[in-house]
Structure formats: structure tokens, C-alpha cells
Write a protein that binds this DNA or RNA. Structure first.
Length: 257
DNA sequence: AGAACCGCCTGCTTGC
DNA sequence: TGCAAGCAGGCGGTTC
């Protein structure tokens, strides 16, 4: 599932491919997306990432915001033949951009471009002091907190598990029990991990692919996610899996306190 | 405030 | 082999 590194990868590739290009056609194949209108003839002036959203900024001041949710992805194709699970196509003079989404959870909205808060994005102007002040004394579990998109933007289940492992913090700890040192460690590893994952063009678990249909390579770097029953690379004990609000959490009971 | 659950979806895995 | 049930989960919404 696309999280910050995957969305950043796509966003950069898209910017490269369609920035400055005019949208010659727009074809919607999925009834859930029929609201996508008034796109033809517009020129793309930028493609930006906003948390897990991809914003395709147009020359009329609007922006097409795409959230890929679970299985959404973009594919660039020279020909206009609809690929399997193709939900939407935008035609450019250089080729065709398809939104592919087997499970149809992805959402597309067209709206006036609004500036979001870069202080919530770990790789932008992240506001560490503001975070600790506003959320550091919450009673909620630390994993739920860092996955809350209103609090931090971009972190999903896979990277949340990996970040907490690197930082040696148990996913069920109440946020309020973390010291400033714990938070510093957590955000240090979060930054490093997310940057490294972008370098690897994302984590290709299940069906994630980049704009050219290529797999990322970060799945080989995962230490706990999907590793239930395997041996921890640090201590040799068995990786555990628990449910937190219906979602799987993977962690090492020995290394994460 | 916080946690759990549901609905949205479809492909894949599991069990008989 | 084939079919049905179960499972996966980001997010918004509801409920306790």
C-alpha cells in the first residue's frame, strides 16, 4: 500500500513526465470517478506530494488530488489501451497516464489548490517542538498516534512498524510515556527510514509498482513488517504480531520496550 | 478522549 | 478441481 515513500516516488516521476504538458483527453472507466470533469485542455504546472496525497496542479488554479488508499497506482503507457483494473486515463501528446486500482478505494477530487501544513511532514519543515507539545502527553498508543494523518502526514502501517522497531519502542506504549529522547530517536529513525525507502523507490509488497510498472526494492529492508514467526535480526528472538484496532502490528517483544 | 467496529471493495488464500 | 468463506487494510464515520 502506498505510503509516503511510494507517493513521493510516484509524485517525482509524474512531475518529470507531465509537468508543462497539456491534458488532451480524460476518460473515466469507473462510475465512482465520474465526477472528474473539466480537465481536458488544462496544462499541468506541477505535481506535488501532500502527505499521502498526490496533487496534480493545473494552470486554472485547481488541483487534482489523488489518494491511492490500498491498491491504487499510476502507470504511464505510450498506447491508450486500458490495462487491467484501469479506472481513469489522461491522454498527453507524449503518452497516457492511467490510474489503476483493483479494489477501487482510491479517491480523486478536483479543488482549488490549498496549502497544507508542512510542519506535519517529517521530510518537510517538520515541527518537532510543536509535536511534542501538542501530542507528547496523549494517552493514545504511540503507533496509532504516528499513523494519524491529522498528526503526522505520510506514515502508514508498514513504516510505522519499521520506525518503532528501529527506535526500540513498543507499539502499545502510551504516547505520554515517551521521553523527549524517545521522540528524538523516533523521528531521527523515521527520517532516515523514509529517505532510504524513497531511494529504493518504495516497498513492493503485494501490488505496488512505480510509474513505469517497476517494483521498488525497499521490501528487502523490512525488519519486522510481515515477519511474524521469523527471527529478529538484532536479538534472535521471534517477531510477534498483534492486532491494534483491526490492523496488524509486527514487532520484536525483546527489542521494543 | 480513546478504542473498537463497520463499510467501502476485490483478489488472494484457505478449507472442505 | 471447485466453490465459499475468510482475510487484508486506509480512512471516515459511528458507537460505546
Amino acid at each position: 500500500m502506498p505510503e509516503l515513500p511510494e507517493v513521493e516516488t510516484l509524485s517525482r516521476q509524474l512531475h518529470q513526465k507531465i509537468c508543462g504538458r497539456k491534458i488532451l483527453s480524460s476518460t473515466v472507466y469507473d462510475d465512482k470517478l465520474v465526477h472528474i470533469k473539466n480537465v481536458r485542455g488544462r496544462r499541468v504546472i506541477a505535481v506535488e506530494r501532500d502527505g499521502k496525497m498526490i496533487d496534480i496542479c493545473l494552470d486554472d488554479g485547481n488541483s487534482i488530488s489523488v489518494h491511492l488508499r490500498m491498491t491504487g497506482r499510476f502507470l504511464w503507457q505510450e498506447n491508450a489501451a486500458k490495462p487491467k483494473h484501469g479506472r481513469w486515463r489522461m491522454g498527453f501528446d507524449t503518452g497516457n497516464l492511467f490510474l489503476i486500482d483493483p479494489r477501487r478505494f482510491a479517491t480523486v477530487t478536483k479543488l482549488k489548490k490549498v496549502k497544507s501544513d508542512p510542519g506535519k511532514d517529517i521530510l518537510k519543515k517538520f515541527d518537532f517542538k510543536g509535536f511534542v507539545k501538542n501530542y507528547g502527553s496523549r494517552k493514545t498508543k504511540v503507533k496509532s498516534l504516528i499513523m494519524d494523518q491529522r498528526v503526522l502526514s505520510g506514515i502508514g502501517n508498514i513504516y510505522a512498524c519499521e520506525i518503532l522497531f528501529k527506535a526500540g519502542i513498543h507499539p502499545e506504549r502510551a504516547a505520554a510515556t515517551l521521553t523527549e529522547g524517545d521522540w528524538k530517536k523516533l523521528f531521527h529513525h523515521a527520517k532516515e527510514l523514509l529517505k532510504a525507502a524513497i531511494q529504493k523507490r518504495g516497498t513492493s509488497i503485494s501490488d505496488w509498482r512505480d510509474l513505469s510498472g517497476c517494483r521498488g526494492e525497499n521490501q528487502y529492508e523490512l525488519k519486522v513488517y510481515g515477519q511474524e514467526g521469523n527471527i529478529c535480526c538484532l536479538c534472535g528472538k521471534v517477531i510477534a504480531r498483534i492486532k491494534q484496532g483491526g490492523r496488524s502490528t509486527f514487532y520484536c517483544p525483546c527489542c521494543q520496550k
